[in-house]
Simulated scan of single mutants.
Amino acid sequence: MLNMFLRINDKLLHFLACLVITLTVGELCAVTAGVTKEAADWMYKKNCKVGSGWDWLDILADAAGIAVGSVLRRIVFTY
């Protein structure tokens, strides 16, 4: 049960991080941050044999945060 809660919490953190990054500095920076984080997880697991490794659900949570942030950014900061 705790493991499932921590997994959901991790996805929420990915969503919120990309949402905030998108709102503050833009979509490209958020995409870069999300992919870099997953690449670091993958390398850490590959080299040190610990960690979560690459997780497509994390990428999906990042993409959702970027999408919501992008819409909010367009609504609030109309250019």
Rank of each mutant, 00 (worst) to 15 (best):
Val68Gln: 09
Trp56Ile: 05
Leu28Pro: 03
Val35Ser: 02
Val76Tyr: 14
Asp58His: 00
Arg73Asn: 09
Ala61Met: 07
Thr22Asp: 02
Gly51Tyr: 05
Trp56Ser: 09
Thr78Ala: 14
Asn9Ser: 13
Phe15Thr: 04
Thr22Glu: 01
Asp10Glu: 09
Asn3His: 05
Lys45Thr: 12
Ala40Glu: 05
Trp56Asp: 06
Leu72Trp: 15
Leu28His: 14
Val50Trp: 02
Gly53Tyr: 04
Trp42Pro: 05
Gly53Pro: 04
Arg73Ser: 03
Leu57Pro: 05
Val31His: 12
Gly34Ile: 01
Gly65Phe: 11
Tyr79Thr: 13
Ile66His: 05
Ile66Gln: 01
Lys45Ile: 12
Phe77Leu: 12
Val76Phe: 12
Ala67Gln: 03
Ile66Met: 04
Asn3Ile: 05
Asp62Met: 04
Ala30Lys: 07
Ala40Phe: 03
Lys45Ala: 09
Trp54Asp: 02
Asp62Lys: 02
Phe15Ser: 07
Arg74Phe: 02
Gly65Tyr: 12
Asp58Phe: 01
Ala17Gly: 08
Gly26Lys: 11
Ala67Cys: 04
Arg74Trp: 06
Cys48Arg: 07
Thr78Ile: 15
Leu16Gly: 03
Ile21Met: 04
Leu57Thr: 13
Ile75Met: 07
Gly65Leu: 10
Ser70Phe: 12
Ala30Asn: 06
Phe5Gln: 12
Ala40His: 01
Ile21Val: 10
Arg73Leu: 00
Ala40Asn: 01
Ala39Val: 15
Ala30Thr: 02
Arg7Asn: 14
Ile75Thr: 11
Tyr44Ile: 15
Gly65Ala: 08
Leu6Pro: 03
Leu2Asn: 02
Thr36Gly: 00
Ala33Pro: 01
Lys11Pro: 01
Asp41Lys: 03
Leu12Cys: 14
Val50Thr: 07
Met4Phe: 10
Thr36Val: 06
Ala63His: 04
Ala63Trp: 06
Met43Ile: 15
Val35Pro: 02
Ser52Pro: 08
Val71Trp: 15
Asn3Glu: 08
Val31Met: 13
Tyr79Gln: 07
Ala64Gly: 09
Leu12Asn: 13
Arg73Gln: 06
Asp62Arg: 04
Asp41Thr: 11
Cys18Tyr: 00
Phe15Leu: 12
Ala30Glu: 08
Arg7Gln: 14
Ile75Tyr: 11
Arg7Tyr: 14
Val50Gly: 01
Leu60Cys: 13
Ile8Glu: 15
Asn47Gly: 05
Thr78Ser: 15
Leu72Ala: 14
Gly53Leu: 00
Val50Asn: 00
Lys45Glu: 13
Val20Pro: 01
Tyr79Phe: 11
Val50Ser: 07
Phe77Trp: 15
Val71Glu: 13
Met4Leu: 14
Asp10Lys: 03
Leu72His: 15
Val31Arg: 15
Leu6Lys: 05
Ile59Glu: 08
Thr32Trp: 01
Val35Lys: 03
Lys46Glu: 09
Gly51Ser: 07
Val76Met: 08
